[in-house]
Nucleic acid binder design. Structure first.
Length: 665
DNA sequence: CATCACGTTGTCTCA
DNA sequence: TTGAGACAACGTGAT
């Protein structure tokens, strides 16, 4: 047997420091090591990724490639433009590969992809080595120690963590890397299907990263550019790469007081330049920073600091434990974690704009939706049960609610791809249980698109938390879009930066301009108009919307709604949720799509007649992001009122019963 | 079975 | 100006 010829497959571990999987690859003492990235059409076309996160990814890849080259002039990150499932068997043969090494992933698409690759490797006689490295603890181990249950509280995480021992100490970056072998590609590229393209809205040109062949336009395995992917220009100042991550970590750790006395609830969501938290989360997502390196560098400072150091859950290390909690919940629940329907852990609330789901036989067997289960969250169709709620949602997304605090945060989110954790609380509460009564799945979908640190497990977990559908239940604690920011930023500096309409409004009214005397507004060069859109001007004045509703009224409606839903007490996997009979448990006039006695899964079917249905659904449906952008290369079977032939709801009576039985197990 | 304390991050009024 | 308590009231886990 010859010496190992190894592919190291980079994924969400775009770093050289503290990579257990990379160490395992090097421990093989390989004859050659190919560092590769498979340019997966799933990511290009099916996962919702906005320009800022694309930029961050490319930053990480370029930085990593340069770091690899520094260790070995012959080596680099080899980006190969094809899906791993089809590429690998050809590649293993061409490069005479003996071992494939990668870091374990936990997201639902990644898990099924990896299973497939592992099976292919077995068939090809390639040995696969998988190491955990994305979290402090292996999420599957964490769940096992939690008696197989999803980790739903910090207590559980810490308890389960104790039995697993301390997180591993970080591993040093390698000092050298073996040469890659011959990189000839003597096989054809499989062109991916670009339809449906959920990222069409993110592009201003055609996607052409596959058009130049497996090794890119120069044949040198280059990292694609935003232009090649056809993605619009990024706007975020926050950039990626391990070099930046390590520098950022150094800055944090250097400040021992900050590191040791960090208390999340005391960090101001209104601070900017600099922000009050570390901004290292996107690096954790892409793996350009190891969470264990972060943990131990912080912990070593904390240990030395003495009794004034903060403790989990509010401390810096506590933040990392929260991340593990969400990964544990995801690991235990699988793909249902990312949605309400079918999720035994998520409370059922009759939110407006509920996700459409396929019938139960689809739901239970294959991915929840064919186009997007992959990304782990939803960008699937949703039911517009209320045009008013749809308008609330649109205004929330684009920062034109008329509540300056909410609008500032949403504009910052869109532009920078990052907002402070408590800012996320504010907008999430506002969209769901503290204002709009819109499904948390709509909000999660927007965060998925825009956040540079979007992590499926954390995003979903936090949306469930804030909407009081899991993890948290004190729905009567509700963030006010006026009182909450005022506590942190009385002068309104943050709002003035992001909502220039408020730039000169007196401090007293900066969070509630509708209360300002007309002459004050005039002096501030702004006028309020019902239903104003972004950037409107009139007679030399900036125009800002009047608040889209009375917050106190809406808060009460929401609290009453939540109380009702808690009383009814259904969870996402309840047969009554799936077959629509949940409606019988709510009065017709309760908030949400509660009218009638029957209805489909998660609100899919709107009235009693349709509930028996064998007809196609042709009622209004729309994608979450459909309303914006010039590059609307709308994929046909995603939206619009023109369902493809054959998009019929499957006959569902028998299969429904079947599901109900299964769900009772 | 009850009771109670607690849970990373609420708001409002009143002294 | 700051701090305490009311508000109306969730689930979990310890006792």
């Amino acid at each position: 047997m010859g010496k190992p010829r190894v592919i190291y497959w980079f994924r969400t571990d775009l770093r050289l420091h503290d990579s257990p999987a990379l160490k395992a690859a090097l421990d093989l003492k390989p004859e050659c090591l190919y560092p590769i990235w498979t340019w997966d059409p799933h990511y290009v076309y099916r996962a919702r990724v906005g320009p800022n996160r694309w930029q961050f990814l490319l930053d990480c890849q370029n930085d990593l490639s340069a770091s690899i080259t520094k260790l070995n002039k012959k080596s680099k990150l080899h980006v190969i433009r094809e899906a791993p499932q089809t590429l690998f068997p050809k590649l293993w043969k061409a490069w005479k590969i003996s071992h494939l090494v990668f870091e374990k992933d936990t997201d639902s698409y990644a898990r099924s992809r990896d299973e497939e690759v592992i099976a292919l490797a077995k068939k090809a006689g390639v040995e696969v080595i998988v190491k955990t490295g994305r979290t402090l603890f292996d999420p599957d181990e964490l769940v096992k120690q939690n008696r197989g249950k999803p980790t739903m509280s910090m207590n559980q995480v810490q308890h389960a963590g104790e039995t697993l021992g301390e997180p591993a100490r970080p591993i040093d970056a390698p000092q050298s890397l073996p040469d890659p072998g011959d990189t000839k590609l003597d096989f054809d590229q499989e062109q991916p299907a670009s339809d449906p393209d959920v990222n069409a809205v993110q592009r201003d040109q055609d996607e052409k990263s596959y058009a130049s062949g497996l090794a890119g336009p120069k044949g040198d395995f280059s990292v694609p550019t935003l232009e090649e992917i056809g993605i619009k220009n990024a706007t975020s100042p926050h950039r990626g790469g391990e070099t930046r991550a390590l520098k950022g970590l150094d800055e944090i750790i250097k400040d021992e007081d900050y590191t040791a006395t960090f208390a999340k609830p005391n960090t101001a969501p209104t601070d900017f330049e600099p922000q009050s938290t570390t901004l290292l989360s996107p690096h954790l997502h892409f793996g350009s920073l190891s969470c264990r390196l972060f943990y131990w560098r912080a912990q070593d400072v904390i240990s030395k600091y003495g009794s004034k150091a903060t403790q989990p859950p509010t401390s810096l290390t506590g933040q990392l434990l929260f991340r593990d909690m969400y990964f544990g919940a995801q690991a235990a629940l699988g793909h249902t974690f990312a949605q309400t329907v079918g999720n035994p852990n998520c409370r059922f609330v009759p939110w407006h704009l509920p996700s459409r789901v396929q019938d139960s036989s689809d739901r239970d067997s294959a991915p929840v939706t064919t186009t997007n289960a992959a990304s782990g969250t939803q960008e699937r169709d949703y039911q517009i049960d209320s045009p008013e709620a749809e308008e609330y949602f649109r205004r929330w997304k684009h920062g034109i609610t008329g509540f300056p605090w909410i609008d500032a945060l949403m504009r910052q989110l869109r532009h920078d791809g990052w907002i402070h954790h408590l800012g996320r609380h504010a907008v999430a509460c506002f969209l769901t249980r503290g204002g709009c009564y819109v499904s948390w799945e709509r909000g999660a979908s927007v965060f998925e698109e825009w956040l540079i640190d979007h992590e499926v497990a954390c995003n979903i977990g936090n949306w469930q938390w804030l909407s009081c559908t899991a993890f948290y239940a004190q729905f009567y604690r509700c963030y006010s879009p006026v009182a909450f920011p005022r506590k942190w930023d009385k002068e309104g500096r943050f709002v003035r930066k992001w909502v220039p309409e408020m730039a000169d409004v007196p401090e007293k009214y900066v969070y509630e301009p509708w209360k300002a005397p007309i002459q004050d507004l005039k002096k501030a060069g702004v006028m309020l108009k019902k239903g104003a859109e972004l950037g409107e001007e009139e007679g030399g004045s900036k125009v800002y919307p009047k608040p889209m509703f009375d917050f106190n009224d809406r808060r009460q409606i929401c609290i009453d709604g939540l109380k009702q839903a808690y009383d009814v007490g259904l969870y996402g996997n309840d047969p009554k949720v799936l077959d629509g009979s949940w409606r019988k448990l709510f009065p017709d006039d309760a908030e949400g799509p509660t009218k009638g006695k029957k209805g489909g899964i998660g609100g899919m079917i709107e009235d009693d007649e349709e509930a028996t249905g064998e007809e196609e659904f042709d009622d209004v449906q729309r994608k979450g992001e459909g309303e914006e952008g010039s590059a609307k290369k709308k994929s046909e079977n995603q939206g619009g009122a023109s369902p493809k032939p054959g998009r019929k709801r499957k006959e569902n009576h028998g299969s429904m019963e079947q599901f109900v039985k299964r769900s009772k197990k």
